[in-house]
Design a binder for these strands. Structure first.
Length: 271
DNA sequence: AATAACACCTGTGTGC
DNA sequence: TGCACACAGGTGTTAT
């Protein structure tokens, strides 16, 4: 489900209900996620939540004793609900708060994760090797050009590589390349600096705009209040293979790159 | 070292 | 109606 905008929308939605709250319980109904939810995750019980941060697509729930590392995978969601809300299918975990609310983790495919890490979490293996955040100045054309130098694989695969830049998944990789006029199969190391400059700007612009729109709801993404995102209405290529290009009217091409559906305009994104 | 393929899992849509 | 299959917003692990 979520790429960076959806995770950030989730963070913004849940944070006000969590910060400064005491955790009363952690109910694990099904700890069989991508990795087993460790027993030590219950260390959060009795702690006060200090802040809720995001690194890449990971949500970090900070307490004085440690940090819960939560990932939504492909189909995960987090909702703030009254503590007595009936449990539905795939409601795997509840973080129970002293204020009578719960943070409920639902994830049909169970590709998500709920881990625990003693500070500092930057050293955690999952987070240690991540590239720069796309919405910070650490992601810029110099950094990108350096990271892509000599790379022979397709630019789209590089955009989706967490070592190069985090948070850009299949939807926004397609959209950013269309906006920048770059063919998704273009050899990453051979793209000129002018194009890369545009690409960096488009990645930032598209992600920021998607966050403002509440994220992209393709099927079932909702924010912490249960409301969908509206960015899907602004998608130019994702999910539109065979339809007409919004810029030139040409029929959009659809291929597979790295096992992921890739859509582009052969005219606007010529090699 | 870099790249490509596979793995995890459930739900949904399509075509027969 | 049933069944087989392809595909879905991610990413760590394994193989080439």
């Amino acid at each position: 489900m979520p790429e960076l905008p959806e995770v950030e929308v989730t963070r913004q939605g849940i944070a006000p209900f969590l910060v400064e709250q005491t955790v009363v319980d952690l109910v694990i109904r099904n700890g069989s996620l991508r990795w087993p939810v460790p027993a030590i995750a219950k260390q959060i019980i009795g702690q006060v939540i200090r802040q809720v941060r995001r690194r890449a697509k990971y949500l970090l729930i900070d307490t004085d004793a440690g940090t819960s590392i939560v990932h939504l995978g492909m189909s995960g969601s987090l909702r703030i609900l009254p503590h007595d809300t009936p449990v539905e299918k795939h409601d795997h975990i509840d973080l129970v708060l002293a204020n009578g609310r719960i943070l409920r983790f639902n994830d049909p495919r169970r590709f998500g994760a709920w881990l625990w890490c003693e500070l500092p979490e930057e050293a955690h293996p999952l987070l240690a090797k991540l590239g720069p955040e796309p919405l910070t100045n650490a992601f810029n054309v110099n950094q990108l050009a350096t990271a892509l130098a000599g790379k022979k694989k397709a630019i789209k695969l590089c955009l989706m590589d967490n070592h190069i830049v985090v948070g850009v998944g299949n939807i926004y990789a397609n959209e950013a390349l269309f906006a920048a006029g770059i063919h998704p199969e273009a050899e990453a190391g051979k793209i000129d600096i002018e194009r890369l400059t545009i690409l960096v700007a488009e990645v930032k612009q598209i992600l920021a705009h998607a966050i403002k729109q509440g994220g992209t709801t393709l099927k079932d993404f909702t924010n912490a209040d249960g409301k969908p995102g509206y960015f899907a209405q602004k998608l130019h290529v994702y999910g539109r293979g065979g339809e007409t290009c919004t810029s030139c009217g040409n029929l959009l091409s659809e291929i597979r790159l790295g096992q992921r559906t890739t859509v582009f305009c052969g005219i606007c994104q010529a090699r």
